[in-house]
């Protein structure tokens, strides 16, 4: 580095500028470390690793509006924390693939995945454990919905989906089981390829709520959504049956489930993974707090689940190219 007296030959303005040049060079290494100073905070995911008492970081694929997710998983965090005796933090993520990646990189401990994202997560994180599913998840359904002005009519068999060729059609997220994977699978059975929609491609609205809003508004003539979210939108009045209706309901398939990191017993103590499972399976509608959670989940209770329950999803995922 240069000494400042070497610059002393300069005058006035030049001197300031040269000092500046020298300073900025001299300070270059000094300025870097503070800007990258070791402290963690805003992302709770990161924060948890630092504190002494381990925090259980739970998350979920963002399949619905964030307000609802925040409310639901805030309640889940409280209930789990009460039952397990450890701090529990809900970490929101912004898209399905990010949830899978964050699980793989170990930023999330317990995640509510969809069928497809769950399989992706387990394949990427060997040893991850399937904890539980809802009573409705063993045989879950998607519904195809259409704007009432689109001229699309309800159909009674999968072949009827062929009327969607040439229509403006939207899926939910790219990685959604009920909003993309299974609908695309059934569309394939009816002979409809994704490039046969109007514009040469389907839309990807991002979430089930978004699909319903877009089809109801007419931006898309039809779409595919999770049946449970559809029912919730009908009940809350957000979906207007005079503008958007169901044209077909799919046969059942396995969907959402809780998945836990393989290392929880090591971090939280022996048997912790089992304790999580016991806690979730114990939730009943007779308990007011648990009832609130179950209602938001659209279920009566949670039941045990195994990895093999999702073999069919893995198979369809491979067929459609979402699992490789």
């Amino acid at each position: 580095m240069f000494k400042l007296d070497q610059i002393g030959i300069l005058r006035g303005r030049e001197r300031s500028a040269a000092v500046l040049a020298g300073l900025s060079l001299a300070l270059a290494p000094a300025a870097l470390p503070p800007s990258l100073s070791p402290a963690l905070a805003p992302l709770p995911a990161a924060q948890a690793q630092q504190t002494n008492k381990p925090v259980l970081r739970i998350s979920a694929i963002p399949d619905q509006q964030p307000e609802k997710l925040n409310r639901l998983y805030g309640l889940v965090a409280n209930e789990l924390s009460k039952q397990l005796g450890v701090p529990v933090k809900y970490v929101p993520v912004t898209n399905y693939a990010a949830a899978v990646s964050a699980f793989r990189t170990g930023n999330l401990d317990l995640v509510w995945f969809g069928g497809l994202t769950g399989v992706q997560a387990r394949l990427q994180k060997p040893g991850a454990k399937v904890i539980a599913q809802r009573d409705i998840d063993a045989s879950f359904h998607s519904v195809f919905i259409a704007n009432t002005k689109s001229g699309l009519r309800p159909v009674s068999s999968v072949q009827g989906l062929s009327q969607l060729k040439g229509k403006r059609f939207t899926f939910g997220s790219e990685s959604s089981t009920s909003g993309r994977l299974m609908p695309q699978y059934f569309l394939g059975q009816a002979g409809v390829k994704p490039n046969q929609f109007s514009g040469g491609a389907p839309g990807f609205s991002g979430s089930h709520d978004a699909t319903i809003a877009l089809v109801q508004s007419g931006a898309y003539q039809a779409g595919a959504v999770n049946e449970q979210v559809w029912k919730a939108n009908l009940r809350s009045g957000k979906a207007d049956p005079s503008k958007v209706t169901v044209i077909w309901k799919t046969p059942g398939y396995p969907d959402y489930h809780w998945i836990a990191q393989p290392n929880l017993d090591k971090r939280f103590g022996k048997g912790f993974t089992n304790r999580i499972q016991t806690a979730i399976l114990s939730w009943r509608t007779s308990n007011p707090e648990q009832k609130q959670i179950l209602t938001l989940f659209g279920a009566q209770q949670f039941t045990g689940a195994q990895a093999s329950d999702y073999n069919r999803i893995e198979q369809v995922g491979r067929q459609i190219g979402k699992i490789r």
């Binding site: 503070p34 990258l36 100073s37 070791p38 905070a41 990161a46």
Partner: peptide, 11 residues
């Protein structure tokens, strides 16, 4: 430096 700390950047 302050902003880095507030954002909890950890190199």
């Amino acid at each position: 430096a302050g902003v880095g700390k507030a954002l909890a950047i950890d190199p």
